[in-house]
Design a binder for these strands. Sequence first.
DNA 1: TAACCTAATTTTATCGACAATATGAACACA
DNA 2: TGTGTTCATATTGTCGATAAAATTAGGTTA
Lengths: 229, 229
Amino acid sequence: MAVSTASSKEPNQASSAYERLEQDILTGHLKPGERLRLKELIVSYNTGNSPMREALSRLSARGIVTREENRGFSVPHATKESLTELLKTRCWIEEIGLRESIANGDNEWEERIVLAFHWLSQSEKSDDLVSGRSPSDLKWSKHHQGFHMALISACNSDILIDFCTQLQGRSFRYFNLAKISKYANRNELEEHRELKDATLERDAELAVSKLKKHYTTTHEILLTSDRFD
Amino acid sequence: MAVSTASSKEPNQASSAYERLEQDILTGHLKPGERLRLKELIVSYNTGNSPMREALSRLSARGIVTREENRGFSVPHATKESLTELLKTRCWIEEIGLRESIANGDNEWEERIVLAFHWLSQSEKSDDLVSGRSPSDLKWSKHHQGFHMALISACNSDILIDFCTQLQGRSFRYFNLAKISKYANRNELEEHRELKDATLERDAELAVSKLKKHYTTTHEILLTSDRFD
DNA sequence: TAACCTAATTTTATCGACAATATGAACACA
DNA sequence: TGTGTTCATATTGTCGATAAAATTAGGTTA
């Protein structure tokens, strides 16, 4: 069982366990369907009964782990069907966030996008193109997620933003599980640039179509993977 | 502190506590901002330390209670601003659910709507119109929620349905906190009927506009309440 | 009086043991 | 061989006590 090493001193053990376990699930280190036995987790993550149980409870409430009453916890299954549902839903909801942001976004919103794109493009360039799964992936992922969140960050609904964060996390897991190099026949930097430009020009229709295209392409690539049930 | 009485034998204490506490928060028996001290809850709900803590953890992960690290849990504040955000977001997301359902719904979906409307109209008629907050309210609420969920139940996204359920729960709390008779100058039965008819006739534009009008009217009524911060 | 420090109290977070439940293996029987 | 039953084991769920952290109250000084 893969385990994240304890990093910075978290406020308390439960939250620390929560974050590390979430990380290990979303990065795909813990495999779909794998059972999460309390006893083993306590050893692996070097914490106690109560904090780990609390972490699992919180994760299950957010759909990051699956729970069966009196039967324990496990890593959610990953099927092509649920991936399709996930991406479809993500398109629906991020479209709203993007349209609202384009309608309401202020200067600071534009700045957030410009900066997020800058860091994304930096990390895309510096990535080495051969070894798809390099250690820098995590950094790229953070920038990628940051960019997409910046786009919708002016929608004036923390609730919607939270939903998008959840969907992003789940998508991230499928991306990692698929084990496909993100450079497979694709110029993501250019896709992101076009998306950024359309957004900053407040061309909602174009921006939304770029966004959907972006996700649809990802979807199609991921579906070629045979790593799902 | 108000407390739900233990009802049917729940699978385990943690889940039972979860549901009862959720109920007491959403019905407004526990007031916004009220601190949820573990010790008191254990006495009130007649359960142990661990199950109650687990219930609180799960509730906080879903935004039903607020948590501050090392400072405990409390009932979320209720402000007019967050109510506005909530209803806005709900309109956005349920619109999607409704449009998708209208596009994809099958016969069973139509049957669910017909039945849900039937029970809703029954409980609306039988409610006595004077005492706004009658014990039958909870029954009406269940039917009301059931009707709105039926409308979107053919959207083919369990994720979206789960989001709608969450938003519905939070809206329900504001409704209860406002303490406004639901018959204030309003014919809800007729609103629901028009919404149902437009939906069953697969007139997406009309149905969506009826839905939004329905929620906007609710919103305006709730905003007249002075029960929020 | 107001600001600040310190100690007592309250409250949250965690631990280790125990109870309840589910799982799996061995065995009897058709 | 296949099916059902019983008992041992493993796993989840709960309890009561303790440790850690925050809050409160009292007292001291300017």
